[in-house]
Amino acid sequence: MIKVAMTGVYVDDVARAHAFYTGILGFETRLHMDLGDGTLFVTVGAPQGAQPDLQLLLEPGEGPVAEPYRRALYETGLPCIVFSVDDIRAEYERLRGLGVRFTHPPRNQGPVLAAVFDDTVGNLVQLVQPKE
């Protein structure tokens, strides 16, 4: 069986992204390596036990492919990644209280409630909660 082990998100500043994804969103650091020349290899994941094998790579977003891709997604309002939560309204209020800027509050979107926020490092991120 093939499983997702790691996926990446391009960010405009890996160190700032690491601080946001761990300090604000609550992810845990899985890998944090300095590759030299100021290049960091950083992965984060859900807190212990939630999804132990899945990692999110905070990928440097400059370059001829990454920067136009990231910018195009952002400018068209498309999230680069989707995270699920158990209680979207509570998470929305918690994140707003921490200063996170949402493009829209939780609302019906097909089979889920969804909200979208700015991750401060060049991306829009969607939160979803399946409807019961």
Rank of each mutant, 00 (worst) to 15 (best):
88 I>F: 00
30 R>M: 12
125 V>N: 05
66 A>H: 13
96 R>T: 14
55 Q>C: 04
77 G>T: 09
72 A>D: 13
22 T>Y: 06
107 R>E: 15
45 G>A: 15
68 P>F: 00
81 I>A: 07
33 M>N: 06
85 V>C: 14
132 E>A: 15
70 R>K: 02
49 G>S: 05
74 Y>Q: 04
50 A>P: 00
69 Y>P: 00
82 V>F: 08
77 G>E: 09
63 G>F: 10
45 G>V: 06
40 L>S: 10
13 D>C: 11
69 Y>K: 09
67 E>C: 11
10 Y>G: 13
120 T>A: 13
104 H>K: 08
4 V>F: 14
119 D>C: 02
32 H>V: 09
77 G>Q: 10
31 L>S: 10
92 Y>K: 02
4 V>G: 05
117 F>I: 06
116 V>N: 03
82 V>L: 08
56 L>Y: 05
61 G>R: 07
93 E>A: 14
44 V>K: 07
107 R>S: 14
38 G>R: 09
123 N>T: 02
116 V>G: 00
32 H>K: 14
92 Y>S: 04
61 G>S: 14
108 N>I: 04
59 E>N: 11
125 V>F: 02
37 D>F: 15
2 I>A: 08
70 R>A: 04
99 G>Q: 09
62 E>L: 12
121 V>C: 12
126 Q>I: 01
130 P>Q: 01
131 K>Q: 09
29 T>H: 08
20 F>N: 02
36 G>D: 14
28 E>P: 01
64 P>W: 14
126 Q>A: 12
26 G>V: 03
47 P>Y: 06
103 T>N: 07
91 E>L: 11
58 L>C: 10
132 E>K: 13
10 Y>W: 12
83 F>I: 01
105 P>H: 08
105 P>I: 11
18 H>P: 04
